[in-house]
């Protein structure tokens, strides 16, 4: 079981969260075309490594969190609110 340190609510059990997918997948612009959207929706590396993920804290603050988790050990290295995560990204990636 994961325990996720929500930047708002503190350390909480996994049961309070809903996994919302790969946070490195950036939605293409609306006119990005089928290939870009296909890649956005379906193509995943499934790496054994650190991984950025979206988790929605449905059982707590209901904020969307960007979590850096190791897919092998489940260790969680960093957690931040989506607003902070998105503002830290280069404009092109938003």
């Amino acid at each position: 079981m994961l325990r996720i340190p929500c930047p708002w609510c503190g350390l909480r059990d996994e049961i309070e969260f809903r996994y919302r997918g790969d946070a490195t997948a950036i939605r293409p612009a609306g006119d990005g075309g089928v290939d870009a959207f296909f890649s956005y929706v379906y193509e995943r590396d499934n790496r054994r490594d650190w991984h950025l993920e979206w988790w929605l804290h449905t059982g707590g603050c209901r904020r969307l969190l960007e979590i850096e988790r190791h897919t092998l050990t489940h260790e969680i290295r960093s957690v931040r609110d989506s607003a902070e995560a998105l503002s830290a990204r280069p404009a092109a990636a938003r």
């Binding site: 809903r18 919302r20 946070a23 939605r27 979206w54 929605l56 449905t58 209901r62 904020r63 969307l64 989506s82 607003a83 998105l86």
Partner: peptide
């Protein structure tokens, strides 16, 4: 509700 909250926070903040 989750779908809307997710998109409001992730894709159209």
């Amino acid at each position: 509700l989750e779908h809307m909250e997710f998109h409001l926070q992730a894709t159209c903040p």
